[in-house]
Design a protein around this nucleic acid. Sequence first.
DNA 1: GGAATTTACTGGCATATACCACTATATCTG
DNA 2: CAGATATAGTGGTATATGCCAGTAAATTCC
Lengths: 153, 153
Amino acid sequence: MANDGIWMLCTNSAIRRASRQLGQLYEDAMGDTGLKGTQFTLLSQIRQDGQPALKALAEAMVMDLSALGHTLKPLIRDGLVELVADPRDRRVKRVRLTTLGEAKQADLVARWQVAQSRFDQVFGAEKSAELRRALALISSPEFADAFENGLRN
Amino acid sequence: MANDGIWMLCTNSAIRRASRQLGQLYEDAMGDTGLKGTQFTLLSQIRQDGQPALKALAEAMVMDLSALGHTLKPLIRDGLVELVADPRDRRVKRVRLTTLGEAKQADLVARWQVAQSRFDQVFGAEKSAELRRALALISSPEFADAFENGLRN
DNA sequence: GGAATTTACTGGCATATACCACTATATCTG
DNA sequence: CAGATATAGTGGTATATGCCAGTAAATTCC
């Protein structure tokens, strides 16, 4: 499996490489819906959060605020999500699924489940859950803090 | 650590999210060199392979050939790598580091090592190596094949 | 209460990455 | 050998993602 690349030494290279591969596999499973993996992720997270402020959503996704804004554009253009101003704090905008967006998301969940169970089957369900836990740990602010400032216990 | 997102269910979401975080951390460690993590990865892989054909490099990186072409553009523009035609097969182009590219790569290795050892320290060196193995497995063509066509043993 | 600061978002620019259509070579086949 | 097919790259278009500079609204501080 090409054990001789920097990805065997550099976790960053390794994770990006695996990202590309997994992105392909999941996207194929998404099929003709025309939506990307990231878009499914976003729709699902928005659905779960209800009506998150952009800032909060960006943080949850571990994504730059402006990157989130850009990424939402096609979804807004296609009428899957919409932005609503927060009446309490007029700096804040909240994202929510439109009716169309909810339908699309539900459709995608079914397809996603196929991809996810294939992954679990090939990689092993237990190892899969463990991998997600490890990745969530890496994605946490605590991890970033320890990385940047050293482990001071 | 926000245990309630889709990233706890969807390995694809989880890996992209962790990619973003790790990309940030490593890039910060790269400092003022002006190069991105991906560019370091590419320079390092090219260095290791010597003078790989674009196709072969794309495969090793698990990257689309045209994506690789686009990604190399800034590196070519900045004089870090160059393309040379293969005399045997004139369809083939090979990439190689320029003298400047070699110097830059060597410089980056030092910085990268700082980032990688911080990662190992925070995540655990053994777990870290194990994670890279898991990611390399996921990135392998065998994995993709099993994912797409099912495990037929 | 008004100036200074912080916060939330927007828009422009640059790289990362994929797909598709097209071109140039090379290889295969009758 | 000529036509069909396969292979390697290129260029265009679209999404993904980050940084920086700006804008507007809220909060803080005399």
